[in-house]
Amino acid sequence: MKILVCISKTPDTTSKIAFTDGNTKFDESGVQWIINPYDEWYSLVRAIELKEKDAAVSIHLITIGTADSEPIIRKALALGGDEAIRVNSNSSDAYFIATQIAEIAKQGGYDLIFTGKETIDYNGSSIGGMIAELTDAPYISLATKFELAGTTATITREVDGGEEVAEVDLPLVVSCQKGVAEQRIPNMRGIMAARTKPLKVVEPIAADTLSSIISYELPPAKAGVKLVAADNVSELARLLHEEAKVI
């Protein structure tokens, strides 16, 4: 049983969002990088839990990034996982990235591929579906629960206005979100072990880039809050009705 967990590097959630070079580049100065929380807290931890239940499970991590993403992949290895693969590219195009992961997936013969539901910087929610298409596997998105019995997965996923439970045979691609697992903190033993775990670097295969980022914008600043006194609550109702026209 082989699991491939997709790991992405994102700015820490408290990072100041600013742009340089005429709003064409994200300003990385002072930015702390973290493992994309959906990849870390949910998909990686769930994979580790599956391995804890069944020693025959092996977990490989994959990231598409340049050498500066190695601390992130080592951090992920400190939580768990047997080895990691880094595809050496700085591409931000979903199709290019998914093509690389699909290639590794086909070579490695994985039974299960986990992604986070999206990255917290690009918010694409695209990679999982694309990998599934490129490897011709079923895809369950927005999973909130994942159980495995033999080669059949039972997955709860978010659907419009509720949840749906489905059974699917492996191989399979799943995007994970809250509910699938609980956040873990790496321990000292894990951090030490991660240093010597194999991290293989491969060059990307040829693939098309179908989109590119032209520029960024920040939202316009808010005009400022209009405070209503706590003993005059009906005034708030009036403002929302007559001024803001939202109720």
Binding site: T209, L210, S212, I213, I214, S215, Y216, L218
Partner: peptide, 8 residues
């Protein structure tokens, strides 16, 4: 923030 993305 917002990004402007070109599709090729």
């Amino acid at each position: 923030a917002f990004a402007n993305i070109s599709i090729h």
